[in-house]
Design a binder for these strands. Structure first.
Lengths: 142, 142
DNA sequence: TTTACTTTCACCCAAAAGTATGATTTGATG
DNA sequence: CATCAAATCATACTTTTGGGTGAAAGTAAA
């Protein structure tokens, strides 16, 4: 920051000196005010852009990339997991109880139990926490 | 891009017009060349910075953050979660049952139940699946 | 020492989860 | 049409989990 300010000061000083020099040394009096202004405007626009980039160059923006989830169809098929079972799995992973899942899918609690039991068999696990883990590893769910 | 160029043109024209207007209307002839240049330099530096930022604003650099897990001590302390509770939480997240956790930590099943109950209270959840989720969100566990 | 916190454990009860088996319906496929 | 897989539900039973209460032992701080 200090460096940038110094550079700016130096630039301005040099420029003014240069113009004065030209003016007095070579009697270049026919250069209009507009010309001077244009030159200065251009130069300092360039400097401004440079400074702007300089100031923000190292700003690495931390973005939680949505990692646009690509469901692993292959694995789902290989394990023989049906659409409905996958739905149940997803709600399970969101922390819902079997009853809540049943309510959301408009089916009975027993149905969800059946689905989850089948899921555990196919995933070769015995608890829902393990099922969630394994499913995430295999990219079956986000 | 076109818009930016237009804005630049308009700015320069307006400025020149303004200066001319001042100069001729109020005979403010004692304003030095240096003053004009300074004003112009400042203005166009600002414009330059603005343009520079404008041009690079949407450039989001994609960085695969190594996510080398940094346990969130602050949050652990804020929630009042003890060392032992965190251990239980971690094993829970690995899919172990309370009994398995008890065996691993060489304590009784009841102890684990107490720990997990306290955990649920502190994490404001009611099921272990939710606890795992929340703990991962808060970076309490990997 | 008193206080507060952690860790440990017990008991009881209720709710949730998981297992096993069997049955019905439906849609797709050969 | 017969068959098969998927989806649904039930009943019964066991295990796991969660909630509430209480309490003992150890540690660290006030």
């Amino acid at each position: 920051m200090k460096k940038i300010i110094l550079i700016y000061g130096a630039s301005l000083a040099t420029l003014v000196f240069l113009l004065k020099y030209l003016e007095y040394q070579f009697f270049v009096r026919d250069l209009s005010l507009e010309f001077y202004l244009s030159v200065v405007a251009l130069l300092f626009t360039g400097l401004g852009i440079w400074a702007g980039l300089r100031l923000t160059r190292n700003k690495v923006v931390m973005v939680r990339v949505a990692t646009e989830f690509k469901s692993n169809e292959t694995e789902l098929e290989r394990l023989g997991i049906s659409k409905r079972e996958r739905e149940v799995l997803e709600l399970m992973a969101k922390g819902f109880s079997n009853q809540e899942i049943a309510d959301r899918l408009f089916v009975s609690l027993n149905t969800i139990k059946t689905h989850s039991s089948n899921l555990f068999l196919k995933l070769e696990v015995s608890r829902r926490t393990q099922a969630i883990q394994k499913a995430k590893e295999l990219c079956l769910i986000p």
